[in-house]
């Protein structure tokens, strides 16, 4: 209970601070953010967009990890954990896409530009969209678990190729891209102490939120299975 209150306070503080703290040219007071040339007020999205993208990666990695575990141990609990995590990953993936896309409208002029990062998140959406489609087409639990685990392994080995091929095909617009000239690597240089602090607090808060949601998701799937079995038996 205590850590739930702690999480609530943390996320409330991050939300209020991230939205309302002013951006000024030469920050003097503790609550002022520095002005990053080329980003200005748009820079505030970093407190909400980057954590969702980070959680997308964490959730999908966890899902793949538990798929791998399932293939080794054949324990159906691992499959459920993998499924619960992938569901969360999908939610955060969509959130990251939407927030990024709205931001891109204001920063780059259009909702979608096929920047390498936009393309990679699109590839993730495709992979997990296919993964959920595969799962829903199979009735038997063990078969579903094995086949979806195999598919997520195959998809996992293709991911590094995206990282190599994408910068060769399209130029990076995204802040922090290797060839980004105006905004530069935002995280390393242009953010001052309080901005970094709130950014990392936000990351920590969202990560705790993910693990909490993951546990609830896993438990709810277990309960649903139990209820289904009860209903079938009469």
């Amino acid at each position: 209970m205590i850590w739930k209150i702690f999480l609530f306070l943390l996320l409330a503080f991050v939300s209020v601070a991230g939205i309302s703290f002013p951006i000024v040219e030469n920050p003097t007071k503790w609550y002022e953010f520095p002005l990053i040339p080329g980003l200005e007020e748009n820079a505030k999205i970093i407190f909400f967009h980057v954590p969702t993208a980070w959680l997308t990666v964490i959730a999908f990695l966890m899902s793949t990890l538990y798929s791998f575990k399932y293939l080794r141990k054949k324990n159906l609990d691992d499959d459920l954990k993998s499924y619960a995590s992938a569901q969360l990953g999908m939610i955060f993936c969509i959130l990251a896409t939407i927030t990024g896309s709205v931001w891109a409208k204001f920063a780059w002029g259009s909702f979608w530009n096929w920047d390498p990062r936009e393309t990679s998140i699109f590839a993730l959406l495709l992979i997990y969209g296919a993964w959920f489609a595969l799962r829903s087409s199979i009735e038997s639990e063990e078969k579903r678990a094995t086949l979806s685990a195999v598919y997520s392994m195959i998809a996992f080995v293709t991911v590094p190729f995206f990282i190599f091929i994408m910068p060769r095909i399209m130029t990076g617009l995204h802040p922090g891209s290797a060839d980004d000239s105006n905004a530069g690597p935002v995280v390393n240089f242009k953010m001052n102490g309080n901005m970094l602090l709130i950014f990392f607090l936000s990351l920590i808060g969202f990560t705790i939120l993910y693990f909490w949601m993951w546990r609830i998701g896993y438990k709810s799937i277990l309960l649903k299975d139990k209820l289904d079995k009860k209903l079938i038996r009469g």
Binding site: A123, L126, A130, A133, L134, S137, I138, A155, F162
Partner: peptide, 30 residues
């Protein structure tokens, strides 16, 4: 092989294959 074991045979195949083939197709187009 995955599709053959899953129920839906025809429709799911391009959906599952596209993300896996995407890096290959991007590189080959290039």
């Amino acid at each position: 092989a995955i599709i053959a074991k899953a129920g839906a045979k025809g429709t799911l195949y391009p959906v599952l294959s596209f993300p896996i083939l995407l890096p290959l197709i991007l590189a080959s187009v290039q």
